[in-house]
């Protein structure tokens, strides 16, 4: 039996929906609290409704598996990935992950429009969890992959949207995690670039990977 890299048991995520304008504003909280300290508790219960985005999810992923999660809008795919990548915590259940994990829930997370392409490569790389030395080593590769050599020192706010996503994806594609979590990020660039991304993905998945294309 091969050893599972990811084990998920009884995972659940509950969000509380608040109806009416029972906002979390401090003003409202203080006001209701002062007006009637006991009523507030009762009302909260009456207007809040639980919504389970995920409930009782169980699965395990073995080394070398490539897994796609598909489902309708609102099925909870992104929530699951967010929990797996430790952005938000589950309400119930337990996950055990073995290995270095990286997640791409969005391309270009943390890109700053005022910074140049070169600077953004370093910033974005660091945000995704790469070491400075690692980024430096792969810098040329990233630039070549994104095909933006000419515009390296231009602030990315002047980039065309195609260039922008190519650069963003290039950084992400050069991460070398043991587990990679991907959320609908492959839909970038023109047909040629998409093909290139898929090839790169195949290359990455020669190691172990979890991947979800939505």
């Amino acid at each position: 039996m091969s050893n599972p890299v990811i084990t998920v048991e009884g995972l659940g995520k509950r969000y509380t929906l608040r109806h009416q304008a029972r906002s979390g504003l401090l003003r409202d909280k203080l006001a209701t609290l002062l007006r009637n300290p006991f009523r507030q508790l009762r009302e909260n219960r009456a207007t809040a409704e639980d919504f389970w985005a995920l409930r009782d999810v169980n699965f395990s992923v073995n080394q070398g598996d490539v897994i796609g999660i598909i489902g309708r809008n609102g099925a909870g795919k992104s929530t699951l990935l967010k929990i797996l990548s430790r952005i938000t915590e589950p309400t119930t259940g337990r996950i055990s992950i073995q290995g270095r994990i990286a997640s791409l829930l969005e391309v270009g997370t943390g890109f700053h429009g005022e910074l140049s392409g070169r600077e953004n490569i370093f910033l974005n790389g660091a945000i995704l969890g790469m070491k400075r030395a690692e980024i430096r080593k792969k810098f040329d590769e990233i630039v070549a992959f994104a095909e933006v050599e000419k515009f390296l020192d231009t602030p990315v706010k002047h980039y065309s949207s195609g260039m922008y996503v190519r650069l963003a994806f290039a950084v992400a594609a050069h991460l070398e995690p043991e587990i990679l979590i991907v959320d609908e990020v492959l839909a970038v660039g023109d047909a040629d670039f998409q093909r290139k991304c898929l090839l790169k993905m195949n290359d990455v998945t020669s190691r172990k990977a979890v991947r979800s294309c939505l």
Binding site: I83, G93, R94, I95, S96, A126, G129, K131
Partner: peptide
Amino acid sequence: SPPPIIIEAGRTERHYWRDLWRYRELLGF
């Protein structure tokens, strides 16, 4: 490979301070 990461509700990260150190470059960036 490091010890497994366990994600559970309400669990405080045991490796929080080690993670903080690991991400020190991000702080600089």
